[in-house]
Write a protein that binds this DNA or RNA. Structure first.
Lengths: 132, 132
DNA sequence: CTAGTTGCAAAGAGTTTGCATGGCG
DNA sequence: CGCCATGCAAACTCTTTGCAACTAG
């Protein structure tokens, strides 16, 4: 959809790649890309385009009124399901045999076709479990 | 948390029970509870309380700037995983053997403790699959 | 050059809050 | 009767949009 690769868009995409799978608000993104590399409105416009393009997911976090954006680098994990840790915020990729089994079981027993790109499983990851 | 059962709160809770598992915005809720049974701000305040109490989940739907609220009647399905249809918006309950298998597989192979109350699997339900 | 993008500032929308009033217990 | 909850409207914040200037191709 975007036609020109402006330096602002380049900076944003590069930032998103570096922070793939993290849940960030537009404001946070604009701030972390400090030194005036891109304006907030341009961030919003680019984020919207990416969302329509299916490259970004929007999530509402409880307790905050902002919406958070999560960029997923599609090349590497088009088909995998995502696990998101509620403690540290990190995203993991569910291992494939499990994911396939889940998809198959849902299709067979619940007659439900899962949309892998839209669903995220929430919980607590190994690292955070250790600490608590 | 709430101390008094006002008629507004009663109307809201009754409405939510009747529309359990549906994703609705605060505005929608206030409007559907028409004839001035409750003000929008009271809806927000009650919704927030319910959210803190874990009885309500907030979701960001792509394309809309509003946040949607989903009430789950905990008594009936404390432990089950939810399936949400992207076409018709209905929520289904994943059948238990599958859910248990999924939880076990995640714990064992990914070392991830799933939070059943927070996760929702998105996809397309049987009814909607037929139609398309 | 031309058309897509940006930045700014203003508009728009959803949500929150202060305060006086009203009602549950 | 006391305190919580409500309604209203104003305040806030996040997000979108109009428009002139800029720039990638």
């Amino acid at each position: 959809m975007p036609k020109y690769m402006t330096k602002q868009r380049k900076a944003l995409l590069s930032f998103l790649s570096a922070h793939a799978d993290e849940e960030l608000s537009a404001r946070q993104i604009a701030q972390m890309l400090d030194d005036d590399s891109i304006s907030v409105s341009a961030v919003y416009r680019n984020l919207s385009a990416l969302e329509q393009d299916g490259k970004i997911r929007r999530v509402a976090k409880s307790g905050s009124r902002e919406v958070f954006y999560q960029y997923t680098d599609c090349s590497s994990c088009k088909d995998c399901l995502h696990l998101s840790c509620e403690k540290c915020g990190k995203t993991y990729h569910m291992n494939m045999p499990d994911a396939d089994r889940l998809v198959a079981a849902l299709a067979q027993n619940d007659d439900f076709s899962i949309d892998k790109s839209a669903t995220v499983l929430y919980g607590v990851c190994r690292e955070c479990k250790k600490q608590s």
